[in-house]
Nucleic acid binder design. Structure first.
Length: 582
DNA sequence: GCCGTTTTCGGCCCGACTGTTTTCAGTCG
């Protein structure tokens, strides 16, 4: 439904409809993506759809329509008039709704391919507002369009952004360099990198801009001015640099960290209080009838140097960036009831670790030593079961041999506790890939799906529900099967699966690998049901143990407190959960 | 199209950069 509404908004926009109407559709689409309950459920239970933020009479009708027919009639009708290729055109940087309309109505261009052809044959000459430079810009944008589509996983962005920032910090006269944007909010994937710089002098500001535009990884400078520059790196990621006054750093950090929805809500809150919030600060209302207008200023700046003072002036406690998604954090901050979010320091151990016994790159000893080094109190060794033949998965006999090694390795060792675990495959019929007798002897049993992703939702759900209903199972690992940028989640009724986990004392995993599965939205649903969340790095090497921090980030985005995290608990408490006596 | 402890009509977040103009429109974030 969100996708259909979004498409309807996009088509309306290139059709030239009222931009506020377009926004209304997009807002509802965004809200639906975050909605913990499904619209179908609301329709079934008779809950008023206008309770959903941004949904009025018209969109409510469309929701009901979509819930029953699976289609949006108005979208089909609009698609008859407006060529779908125009949506693709909009994704070329620099091509906005107006240009799309001009291209379509005045030149008959309705797709990226046709735009390229029109460029090559000089058919765009004479288009109002389009000169030689604009044509060049479109050509460059088309190259980028083909090279880079989509978002980059958080961990990859970190590897790119951090050395870049270090280089800018080294420029003489640079006071601060901060990464804002979705990277600071720790979103699972990142579209571009936003950098904020405070320079002591104008000369230093020019120097840092020069350093930015000449950075070796920069493939193309998209634009550069006194306060703002943009560049695209060789790998296609866009980086934006803003030079900020120290007095406005907090305001800029706030503004450029977003999210957009959070900012919009904050601005509205400011307006309600007779204030005006921009990236330059929080200002008192200026130019009213009573007060003489101050030349060149909207009013006195009442806050701006730090985020804390701006939030405080708005009557809010400081909101951690991970929460800034307009998911209720502003209301909670106003009540001073923001949750105490889980941190890396709360994590006492790793509950999903592989070794050379299956497809890991490091030995058990290396993994155990690395976990000691990380300060963990315990870890669970969870190699694959025999169904995953390509990983060298373990059958009962091999498991017995592994345990002999573990006994030897851990004898007399009291620096860490090693839990005997396994990541047991959920077979196609929902049975488990290890005998009951051996399941019972394990300290911790993870179960997960690694095959038959193509089953129908009903079959997949029944399969997973059956698996987690087995009395020996403790954790459902990577529940949705997604791999960022590579594989979409399989069809699954996550609500039904969560219910089964709750009923059976099974925790759901957040897999802190390139999966980041469950997603933040799924984690919110899990947390609000009272499920226990197990954090596992799914490390197949020592280096991958460090991925845990990205998992903690996602938990924080989902408002998860330490109490809900299985491996934030002391060993004795963890054991009680695993014994299902908790 | 949505929304309302000022409003059922008139708003809807706001500023920088670019290019094409010569005071502004389009686009982006």
């Amino acid at each position: 439904m969100a996708r259909l509404l979004e498409e309807f908004g996009d088509l309306s926009e290139v059709n030239g409809d009222n931009p506020f109407k377009v926004r209304a559709y997009r807002n509802v689409a965004a809200t639906l993506r975050e909605l913990p309950t499904s619209v179908e459920e609301m329709v079934r239970s008779g809950a008023p759809l206008t309770d959903i933020k941004g949904v009025g009479k018209e969109i409510a009708l469309k929701l009901v329509d979509m819930a029953t027919t699976g289609r949006l009639r108005q979208l089909d009708e609009l698609a008859e008039i407006v060529p779908l290729g125009l949506l693709e055109l909009r994704r070329v940087k620099g091509v906005g709704p107006k240009l799309v309309q001009a291209l379509w109505r005045e030149r008959g261009v309705t797709s990226v391919a046709e735009l390229e052809e029109a460029l090559a044959t000089g058919r765009l000459a004479g288009l109002a507002g389009v000169g030689a430079k604009k044509l060049e810009a479109i050509e460059r944008a088309l190259e980028a369009y083909h090279r880079h589509v989509g978002r980059t996983p958080l961990a990859e962005i970190g590897a790119i952004a951090e050395p870049f920032v270090a280089r800018l910090r080294a420029v003489d006269g640079v006071e601060r360099v901060e990464i804002a944007g979705s990277y600071r909010r720790r979103k699972d994937t990142i579209g571009d990198i936003d950098l904020l710089v405070v320079a002591k002098t104008e000369a230093a500001a020019r120097a840092v801009t020069r350093e930015f535009t000449t950075y070796p990884e920069v493939a193309e400078v998209l634009g550069s001015g006194e306060t703002r520059s943009s560049a695209r790196l060789a790998n296609g990621v866009q980086v934006d640099l803003r030079v900020i006054e120290a007095e406005a750093l907090g305001a800029a950090l706030l503004y450029f960290t977003g999210s957009k929805a959070h900012n919009v809500a904050l601005r509205q809150l400011a307006l309600d209080k007779g204030l005006h919030l921009s990236e330059y600060g929080l200002f008192a209302e200026g130019g009213s009838d009573a007060a003489p207008a101050t030349p060149g200023a909207a009013g006195e700046r009442v806050a701006g140097r730090t985020e804390e003072e701006i939030y405080e002036r708005l009557g809010l406690e400081w909101i951690p960036p991970e929460l800034r998604e307009d998911r209720g954090e502003i209301a909670a901050a106003a009540r001073h009831e923001l949750p105490r979010l889980v941190t890396m320091a709360d994590v006492r151990g790793d509950l999903h670790v592989h070794s050379t016994w299956s497809d890991g790159k490091a030995t058990v000893r290396e993994m155990v030593d690395a976990c000691v080094e990380r300060g963990y109190e315990y870890l669970a060794l969870t190699d694959h079961s025999k169904a995953l033949a390509m990983t060298g998965g373990l059958d009962e006999a091999k498991l017995a041999r592994q345990w002999a090694e573990l006994d030897e390795l851990m004898a007399g060792r009291d620096d860490i506790t090693l839990l005997r675990g396994m990541e047991v495959d959920i077979l196609k019929d929902g049975t488990l890939d290890l005998s009951d007798e051996w399941l019972e002897r394990l300290d911790i049993v993870l179960v997960s799906v690694h095959s038959h992703f193509e089953l129908s939702e009903a079959e997949q759900t029944a399969r997973v529900v059956k698996a987690v209903s087995h009395p020996q199972v403790n954790v459902l690992a990577h529940p949705t099967g997604r791999v960022l940028g590579q594989r979409d989640p399989y069809a699954l009724d996550l609500s039904a699966v969560f219910d089964a986990c709750l009923a059976n004392g099974v925790a759901v995993e957040h897999n802190a690998s390139e999966r980041l599965d469950l997603s933040d939205v799924d984690l919110i649903a899990a947390r609000s049901r009272g499920l226990t969340i197990s954090l596992g790095s799914d490390a197949h090497s020592v280096a991958q143990l460090a991925g845990m921090r990205y998992g903690v980030d996602q938990l924080r985005r989902a408002w998860v407190t330490p109490g809900a995290v299985l491996n934030a608990r002391p060993l004795a408490e963890l054991r009680r959960f695993l014994a299902k006596t908790a």
